[in-house]
Protein backbone atom coordinates (compact mmCIF):
# COMPACT_ATOMS: atom_id res chain seq x y z
CA UNK A 1 0.00 0.00 0.00
CA UNK A 2 2.73 2.36 0.99
CA UNK A 3 4.60 1.56 -2.17
CA UNK A 4 1.57 2.40 -4.29
CA UNK A 5 1.18 5.78 -2.60
CA UNK A 6 4.87 6.42 -3.03
CA UNK A 7 4.65 5.45 -6.71
CA UNK A 8 1.74 7.83 -7.27
CA UNK A 9 3.52 10.58 -5.40
CA UNK A 10 6.62 10.20 -7.48
CA UNK A 11 4.60 10.43 -10.71
CA UNK A 12 2.81 13.52 -9.48
CA UNK A 13 6.11 15.03 -8.38
CA UNK A 14 7.73 14.52 -11.78
CA UNK A 15 4.74 16.19 -13.39
CA UNK A 16 4.50 19.13 -11.02
CA UNK A 17 8.21 20.01 -10.97
CA UNK A 18 8.06 20.85 -14.69
CA UNK A 19 5.00 22.97 -14.24
CA UNK A 20 6.38 25.13 -11.45
CA UNK A 21 9.62 24.43 -9.53
CA UNK A 22 11.69 23.63 -12.62
CA UNK A 23 9.60 25.46 -15.18
CA UNK A 24 11.61 25.27 -18.43
CA UNK A 25 11.08 28.91 -19.37
CA UNK A 26 10.87 30.82 -16.10
CA UNK A 27 13.36 28.83 -14.02
CA UNK A 28 15.63 26.97 -16.45
CA UNK A 29 15.35 29.77 -19.08
CA UNK A 30 15.31 27.23 -21.92
CA UNK A 31 13.48 27.52 -25.23
CA UNK A 32 13.91 31.28 -25.41
CA UNK A 33 13.77 31.33 -29.21
CA UNK A 34 10.12 30.25 -29.52
CA UNK A 35 9.19 32.04 -26.28
CA UNK A 36 10.22 35.36 -27.79
CA UNK A 37 9.48 34.82 -31.46
CA UNK A 38 6.06 33.23 -31.75
CA UNK A 39 4.25 34.53 -28.68
CA UNK A 40 2.70 37.50 -30.48
CA UNK A 41 -0.74 35.91 -30.33
CA UNK A 42 -2.34 33.49 -27.90
CA UNK A 43 -3.19 31.01 -30.64
CA UNK A 44 0.41 30.90 -31.89
CA UNK A 45 1.67 30.39 -28.33
CA UNK A 46 -0.76 27.54 -27.79
CA UNK A 47 0.07 25.90 -31.12
CA UNK A 48 3.80 26.11 -30.41
CA UNK A 49 3.24 24.72 -26.91
CA UNK A 50 1.23 21.78 -28.22
CA UNK A 51 3.71 21.04 -31.03
CA UNK A 52 6.54 20.99 -28.49
CA UNK A 53 4.45 18.77 -26.19
CA UNK A 54 3.98 16.21 -28.95
CA UNK A 55 7.67 16.15 -29.85
CA UNK A 56 8.86 15.98 -26.25
CA UNK A 57 6.39 13.28 -25.25
CA UNK A 58 7.08 11.02 -28.25
CA UNK A 59 10.85 11.47 -28.01
CA UNK A 60 10.87 10.76 -24.28
CA UNK A 61 8.86 7.56 -24.73
CA UNK A 62 11.19 6.31 -27.48
CA UNK A 63 14.43 7.32 -25.78
CA UNK A 64 13.34 5.81 -22.48
CA UNK A 65 12.19 2.58 -24.17
CA UNK A 66 15.40 2.08 -26.13
CA UNK A 67 17.83 3.51 -23.59
CA UNK A 68 19.58 0.16 -23.06
CA UNK A 69 20.00 -0.47 -26.81
CA UNK A 70 21.37 2.94 -27.81
CA UNK A 71 25.18 2.89 -27.35
CA UNK A 72 26.36 5.67 -25.04
CA UNK A 73 28.89 6.93 -27.58
CA UNK A 74 26.27 7.83 -30.19
CA UNK A 75 23.37 8.67 -27.90
CA UNK A 76 23.16 12.38 -28.76
CA UNK A 77 23.06 11.61 -32.48
CA UNK A 78 20.37 9.01 -31.90
CA UNK A 79 18.31 11.46 -29.81
CA UNK A 80 18.58 14.09 -32.51
CA UNK A 81 17.40 11.61 -35.16
CA UNK A 82 14.39 10.73 -33.00
CA UNK A 83 13.57 14.37 -32.20
CA UNK A 84 14.01 15.54 -35.80
CA UNK A 85 11.70 12.79 -37.04
CA UNK A 86 8.88 13.89 -34.77
CA UNK A 87 9.46 17.56 -35.55
CA UNK A 88 9.10 16.81 -39.26
CA UNK A 89 5.91 14.87 -38.55
CA UNK A 90 4.51 17.91 -36.70
CA UNK A 91 5.65 20.22 -39.50
CA UNK A 92 3.82 18.22 -42.18
CA UNK A 93 0.75 17.68 -40.02
CA UNK A 94 0.37 21.40 -39.28
CA UNK A 95 0.83 22.28 -42.96
CA UNK A 96 -1.85 19.77 -43.92
CA UNK A 97 -4.46 20.45 -41.25
CA UNK A 98 -3.92 24.04 -40.10
CA UNK A 99 -2.19 25.89 -42.97
CA UNK A 100 -2.88 29.30 -41.41
CA UNK A 101 -1.05 28.46 -38.18
CA UNK A 102 1.74 26.75 -40.09
CA UNK A 103 2.28 29.92 -42.09
CA UNK A 104 2.41 32.05 -38.93
CA UNK A 105 4.85 29.81 -37.08
CA UNK A 106 6.98 29.35 -40.19
CA UNK A 107 10.55 28.25 -39.54
CA UNK A 108 10.00 28.04 -35.79
CA UNK A 109 8.33 24.64 -36.14
CA UNK A 110 11.48 23.21 -37.70
CA UNK A 111 13.52 24.94 -34.99
CA UNK A 112 11.88 22.79 -32.29
CA UNK A 113 14.70 20.33 -33.13
CA UNK A 114 17.22 22.63 -31.51
CA UNK A 115 15.03 23.52 -28.54
CA UNK A 116 17.35 22.78 -25.65
CA UNK A 117 14.39 21.80 -23.51
CA UNK A 118 13.77 18.65 -25.57
CA UNK A 119 17.33 17.35 -25.95
CA UNK A 120 17.94 18.34 -22.32
CA UNK A 121 15.10 16.19 -21.01
CA UNK A 122 16.29 13.19 -23.06
CA UNK A 123 19.82 13.48 -21.71
CA UNK A 124 18.90 14.40 -18.15
CA UNK A 125 15.83 12.28 -17.57
CA UNK A 126 14.43 9.92 -20.23
CA UNK A 127 17.75 8.14 -20.79
CA UNK A 128 18.01 7.26 -17.08
CA UNK A 129 14.44 6.61 -15.97
CA UNK A 130 11.65 4.11 -16.72
CA UNK A 131 9.07 4.86 -19.40
CA UNK A 132 6.27 5.74 -16.98
CA UNK A 133 8.28 8.36 -15.14
CA UNK A 134 9.65 9.73 -18.41
CA UNK A 135 6.12 10.26 -19.68
CA UNK A 136 5.22 12.16 -16.51
CA UNK A 137 8.39 14.22 -16.79
CA UNK A 138 7.74 15.02 -20.47
CA UNK A 139 4.10 15.92 -19.77
CA UNK A 140 5.09 18.14 -16.85
CA UNK A 141 7.85 19.93 -18.71
CA UNK A 142 5.73 20.53 -21.79
CA UNK A 143 2.77 21.65 -19.69
CA UNK A 144 5.14 24.10 -18.01
CA UNK A 145 6.41 25.26 -21.40
CA UNK A 146 2.89 25.69 -22.81
CA UNK A 147 1.85 27.52 -19.63
CA UNK A 148 4.82 29.88 -19.98
CA UNK A 149 4.12 30.46 -23.67
CA UNK A 150 0.53 31.42 -22.84
CA UNK A 151 1.69 33.65 -19.95
CA UNK A 152 3.73 35.61 -22.50
CA UNK A 153 1.34 35.29 -25.45
CA UNK A 154 -1.98 36.23 -23.85
CA UNK A 155 -0.93 39.65 -22.44
CA UNK A 156 0.95 40.42 -25.67
CA UNK A 157 -2.12 39.79 -27.81
CA UNK A 158 -4.53 41.53 -25.43
CA UNK A 159 -2.38 44.66 -25.19
CA UNK A 160 -0.93 44.61 -28.69
CA UNK A 161 -4.03 43.90 -30.77
CA UNK A 162 -6.86 44.29 -28.25
CA UNK A 163 -8.02 40.74 -28.88
CA UNK A 164 -7.74 37.28 -27.37
CA UNK A 165 -7.73 34.17 -29.58
CA UNK A 166 -8.71 36.54 -32.41
CA UNK A 167 -11.84 37.73 -30.57
CA UNK A 168 -11.94 41.52 -30.21
CA UNK A 169 -12.13 42.42 -26.52
CA UNK A 170 -12.38 46.20 -26.56
CA UNK A 171 -14.32 48.74 -28.58
CA UNK A 172 -12.87 51.00 -31.24
CA UNK A 173 -11.72 53.46 -28.58
CA UNK A 174 -8.91 51.08 -27.57
CA UNK A 175 -5.61 52.07 -29.12
CA UNK A 176 -3.46 48.91 -29.37
CA UNK A 177 0.03 48.99 -27.89
CA UNK A 178 1.58 47.93 -31.16
CA UNK A 179 5.01 47.49 -29.55
CA UNK A 180 3.71 44.49 -27.63
CA UNK A 181 3.25 42.37 -30.77
CA UNK A 182 6.58 43.52 -32.19
CA UNK A 183 9.80 41.75 -31.13
CA UNK A 184 10.56 44.19 -28.25
CA UNK A 185 7.20 43.27 -26.70
CA UNK A 186 8.43 39.71 -26.33
CA UNK A 187 11.47 40.86 -24.40
CA UNK A 188 9.40 43.22 -22.21
CA UNK A 189 6.90 40.51 -21.32
CA UNK A 190 9.53 37.82 -20.71
CA UNK A 191 11.62 40.15 -18.55
CA UNK A 192 8.58 41.20 -16.58
CA UNK A 193 7.53 37.60 -15.94
CA UNK A 194 11.06 36.48 -15.02
CA UNK A 195 11.22 39.34 -12.55
CA UNK A 196 7.93 38.30 -10.98
CA UNK A 197 8.93 34.65 -10.86
CA UNK A 198 12.28 35.35 -9.23
CA UNK A 199 10.79 37.78 -6.75
CA UNK A 200 8.22 35.18 -5.74
CA UNK A 201 10.73 32.35 -5.31
CA UNK A 202 13.05 34.59 -3.31
CA UNK A 203 10.23 35.56 -0.96
CA UNK A 204 9.40 31.90 -0.57
CA UNK A 205 12.99 31.07 0.31
CA UNK A 206 13.16 33.88 2.84
CA UNK A 207 9.98 32.75 4.51
CA UNK A 208 11.27 29.17 4.71
CA UNK A 209 14.48 30.44 6.27
CA UNK A 210 12.62 32.45 8.88
CA UNK A 211 10.47 29.46 9.71
CA UNK A 212 13.56 27.32 10.12
CA UNK A 213 15.14 29.82 12.47
CA UNK A 214 12.00 30.09 14.57
CA UNK A 215 11.88 26.35 14.99
Amino acid sequence: MNKLVEYKNQNAQEFLKGLWDENPVFVAVLGMCPALAVTNTAINSLAMGLATTFVLLCSSILVSTFKSIIPKQVRITAYIIIIATFVTVVDFALAAFTPAIHKELGAFIALIVVNCLILGRQEAFASKNPVGLSIMDALGMSAGFTFAMLCIGIPREVLGSGSLFNIQLFGDSFEPWVVMILPPGGFFMLGFLLLGFNWYSQKKKERALIKQKLN
Partner: peptide, 29 residues
Protein backbone atom coordinates in the same frame (compact mmCIF):
# COMPACT_ATOMS: atom_id res chain seq x y z
CA UNK B 1 29.99 -1.95 -36.19
CA UNK B 2 27.52 -1.78 -33.34
CA UNK B 3 27.56 2.02 -33.35
CA UNK B 4 26.98 2.16 -37.09
CA UNK B 5 24.25 -0.44 -36.84
CA UNK B 6 22.42 1.45 -34.09
CA UNK B 7 22.47 4.72 -36.00
CA UNK B 8 21.66 2.93 -39.26
CA UNK B 9 18.55 1.37 -37.75
CA UNK B 10 17.53 4.70 -36.19
CA UNK B 11 17.96 6.43 -39.55
CA UNK B 12 16.05 3.73 -41.38
CA UNK B 13 13.10 3.86 -38.98
CA UNK B 14 13.10 7.64 -39.17
CA UNK B 15 13.14 7.47 -42.97
CA UNK B 16 10.20 5.09 -43.08
CA UNK B 17 8.15 7.30 -40.76
CA UNK B 18 8.98 10.42 -42.79
CA UNK B 19 8.09 8.81 -46.11
CA UNK B 20 4.81 7.65 -44.59
CA UNK B 21 3.83 11.07 -43.27
CA UNK B 22 4.91 12.72 -46.51
CA UNK B 23 2.75 10.42 -48.65
CA UNK B 24 -0.16 10.94 -46.29
CA UNK B 25 0.00 14.74 -45.98
CA UNK B 26 1.41 15.85 -49.34
CA UNK B 27 -1.92 15.77 -51.23
CA UNK B 28 -3.51 17.80 -48.44
CA UNK B 29 -0.70 20.36 -48.41
Amino acid sequence: FRLILALGIAGLMSGIILVGIFIYTNPMI
